[in-house]
């Protein structure tokens, strides 16, 4: 087991090196002079020279990469060209917002998707089964940004129930420590802020969670269906166990594996979806920051944020793989 873990962790290193090379290459592959592209045609020669200097574009390429990777390893991803803020610092400041959104989304997806899948499998062919699977099918086919806009239209514009975007109303005075607003407000005992933060979180979390929810529901259903026809389930029924015990202790326990895999596979979708959801809901996370930086042609931010998200993605996939091996003793550690 330990050998498998070490081996699996080691495979990540060349991939991350490749990722860093690709991300580094991005800026260098831009046609034309990067500094001019960033600052626009009307930039003064001094400014162009300053940006070239800041990005180290005057040095040989291999030296530029060594500097880039050396700095990145020390957690320095350069500075924004426009606002001169350090990219790493800004990333870390915005990261909790993205995590809060993504975690809430996956939580909603699990809380609704798994029970819906289980009930669909047990009552296969029922109206509930048909309805929830139809819903799941339309759920996976919906663009997440459209769902977000529709939710805003319905719950904010028409019904005036929830805010249209942001994490807290502009008038709220609140100093966050960890920048996980729900956590901070609870720790400080500020329930008014907690409630407001929750109200802002609901719509984006539902929008972002909808597709994973649909996929998890379908996967849980099919995994449960497969398990429910197994011999040991019939045995469990035959020895007089209650339906509940059969489903939870025997069926669900063995249906977990595909469900965990599918949850793991949602990480990429969540990160991609977060870019769109944050844009729709003006959510001050990494995704929206990245999109804004692309509009502004602020390439150090694009480079830093892309690298950061890719590292998170690779890291979570690694964790899921390890978890998978840990949960299923049948997997051979070769």
């Amino acid at each position: 087991m330990l050998r498998y873990v070490i081996k699996r962790v080691l495979t990540v290193i060349p991939v991350l090196l490749g990722v860093s090379l690709l991300v580094f290459g991005f800026i260098r592959m831009i046609p034309g002079d990067v500094a001019t592209v960033m600052l626009g045609e009307r930039a003064t020669p001094e400014n162009v020279a300053r940006v070239r200097e800041q990005l180290g574009l005057n040095k040989p390429v291999y030296e530029q990469y060594l500097i880039f990777i050396g700095n990145a390893l020390r957690g320095d991803l350069g500075r924004s060209v426009l606002r001169q803020e350090p990219v790493t610092q800004e990333l870390l400041r915005r990261f909790p917002a993205t995590i809060e959104l993504a975690l809430s989304a996956i939580l909603i997806a699990l809380l609704v998707g798994i029970p819906a899948g289980i009930v669909s499998a047990i009552r296969r062919g029922s109206v509930f089964d048909a309805a929830s699977m139809l819903l799941a099918l339309t759920g996976v086919s919906m663009p997440v940004f459209w769902l977000g806009l529709m939710l805003i239209f319905l719950f904010s514009v028409v019904l005036h129930l929830l805010p249209t975007g942001g994490r807290l109303g502009a008038s709220m005075e609140f100093t966050a420590t960890t920048n996980f607003l729900l956590l901070d407000s609870l720790l400080q005992g500020n329930f008014h802020v907690f409630f407001q933060a929750l109200r802002h979180l609901i719509l984006p979390a539902v929008a972002l969670g909808s597709i994973p929810m649909a996929i998890i529901a379908r996967m849980t259903r099919s995994a449960m269906l497969e398990v429910l026809s197994a011999d040991y389930i019939r045995t469990a029924h035959a020895k007089g166990l209650k339906e509940r015990a059969v489903v939870i202790n025997h069926a669900l326990r063995n249906a977990w594996l595909p469900v965990i895999t599918v949850v793991g596979l949602q990480v990429g979708r969540l990160l991609s979806g977060a870019i769109l959801t944050e844009t729709v809901f003006s959510w001050p996370g990494i995704g929206r920051w990245l999109v804004d930086a692309i509009y502004a042609r602020d390439f150090p931010i694009v480079q830093g944020a892309t690298l950061f998200i890719a590292i998170i993605f690779v890291g979570v996939n690694l964790l899921v793989d390890l978890l998978y091996a840990f949960v299923d003793p049948r997997i051979k550690f070769e």
């Binding site: 991939v15 490749g18 991300v23 990429g268 991609s272 990245l290 890719a310 993605f313």
Partner: peptide, 10 residues
């Protein structure tokens, strides 16, 4: 190693 949309955006 990149989430799909992120790579497309990049």
């Amino acid at each position: 190693a990149f989430p799909g949309l992120l790579l497309a955006i990049a």
